[in-house]
Design a binder for these strands. Sequence first.
DNA 1: CTGTTAGCGCTTTCAC
DNA 2: GTGAAAGCGCTAACAG
Lengths: 339, 339
Amino acid sequence: MGVTIRDVAKAAGVSITTVSRVLNQYTDVNPKTRQKVLKVIEQMGYQPNSVARSLVKNRTQTVGLVVSDLSKYRSGHHFMFDVLCGINDRAQELGYDLVLFSTTPTAQKKTTYMDFVKQRRVDGVVMMGIRLDDPYTHEVVEASIPSVLIDVPLTSKTCSYVMTDNVKGAKMAVEHLINLGHRQIGFVNGHDQAAVSKERLTGYIQALEGAGLSYHPDYVYYGNFEQEDGAQGVRCLKQRHPEISAVFFASDLMAIGGIKYIQSSGGQVPRDLSIVGFDDISLASLMQPALTTIRQMRYEMGRAAVETLLRMLENGETGRGMILPPELVLRETTEPFAK
Amino acid sequence: MGVTIRDVAKAAGVSITTVSRVLNQYTDVNPKTRQKVLKVIEQMGYQPNSVARSLVKNRTQTVGLVVSDLSKYRSGHHFMFDVLCGINDRAQELGYDLVLFSTTPTAQKKTTYMDFVKQRRVDGVVMMGIRLDDPYTHEVVEASIPSVLIDVPLTSKTCSYVMTDNVKGAKMAVEHLINLGHRQIGFVNGHDQAAVSKERLTGYIQALEGAGLSYHPDYVYYGNFEQEDGAQGVRCLKQRHPEISAVFFASDLMAIGGIKYIQSSGGQVPRDLSIVGFDDISLASLMQPALTTIRQMRYEMGRAAVETLLRMLENGETGRGMILPPELVLRETTEPFAK
DNA sequence: CTGTTAGCGCTTTCAC
DNA sequence: GTGAAAGCGCTAACAG
């Protein structure tokens, strides 16, 4: 069915080597021969078989995107999708294909990360959605194949990472609240096996201390980035500490949960509680009231990940961290503290 | 670096043929030999090289997902992401890998659909986000490799499609409005090169006629599924036909644009205009007021697409259409018509 | 500048 | 039951 390099060679009256040469842009080919071959290729609609090429070159021009349980991110977590778009776009631009690999939790096939890499022979990997205590995590960092982690600040010779400056982001959020006059500020964080949670907590504390306020561990609630966790968080916090006048959430989804909770119990945002989220998902600006939040450059994170990966791959660069700046987006869910 | 079948054979004291046999679950292998080989494989951490395997078998165990300009769907169009998750999950379950192929509009690399398929040797393809007038469209339908189209009702021997029953969905939406007493019902449709737009228009007309109402082509506005198109649509419709009391939108995003427009011009939904959307994206339920809409089973569409594809691929089934049911989700943006 | 040759790692006849 | 050998489509020395 498919036309091979041999067919082209025969039709052009040259050896397959010569065809291979023009295919691979070698310069030592007689211009006339090149033209002839090119013409035949065109006519026959020949496309080199990348599988064969991969086999001999031992490179697939493919990067793997490993996500633990992609489907988990369906409802609302558009973080993943935007990063994915960035990865896909940049990979395409640089001539690489993207293959998805998501570990299904159901039917926990023991296809480990390394199995995937070894079998599919991807040239490099970017991972997201993994936790610090994930068994994969260290497998990747130690692996010989280049990798880039999204939101996990670990490096090795072959492993880089890309993440937002979460300390700064959290700090900006909380300082904004402080500037508005709030003094009792709660924090609904993500689970503690996410690197970002640790960083955001640090930022929260730094902002507090920078303003001479003391840090109450009891003002922090740990959720799982989901909407219901946000509702839970506000409920617990307000119940135990009615004096809290503002809450910072480690994700927009949780912030929305928090807002919905306040509203459903007869309150209003920001009148009864000032709220700042994190991410700036598209929902944030569409909400009523529109959510004040810390924007992450998701698409750019994806692009940067591929960029970094290919630099390790093609230039032999060594692993390093890359930090993207957050941005405070002022909208309608915060207002000055009114005693 | 990598351990090959030859290494395993040597270590196990058998020929590579035998190793290949146990790898491929052939039965004509002495149980003892099999055990020995298996043990060596385990010890050496051997993983068969799927590239080599693909070359000789001329099958890659890979399906391609072709999307025209994936990034376009970033803000708000979570339709794509959910379908993608479905595709990914089902493909994984069935032992196939997913490779993404999105055509970047910028730098319109002339890498056509067929080039991709021929080069990467994917076994089959699912396409989404393509238009009827897209050059790809017919290339795919006619191709020898199996394909499944999402939302484009075209079949051939090797081409199937999966889509929601859009006629019925639109009909349900409009009938709901009619039952509420509305008589002057506008329709903000998608662009007319989308198959779904045609179907939804049909449903709209059918509902009208079924209730003995007449169809005014002038009550239909054509947008591009984006938020701003919805705003535009309502503006035009209300301006030219102030008597319109309800509008059906061909996407939630447009419906939201419509709602925002009404609100920003001092009106209220549903008091001043009843609204029904289409899709049921996560935003819909989170909006204020929450959006009444027609739900599409996006994740299931993705799964069904892969299912169908693999049936063509592995059982030689011939192309066919698959229709998934829509569902009316009642929320807060519609109310009885009050003269 | 061009052709010959030897693999890349695997599956698959075909003998034994 | 098992092995030898051919070959998938291509690239990469190495000659000429």
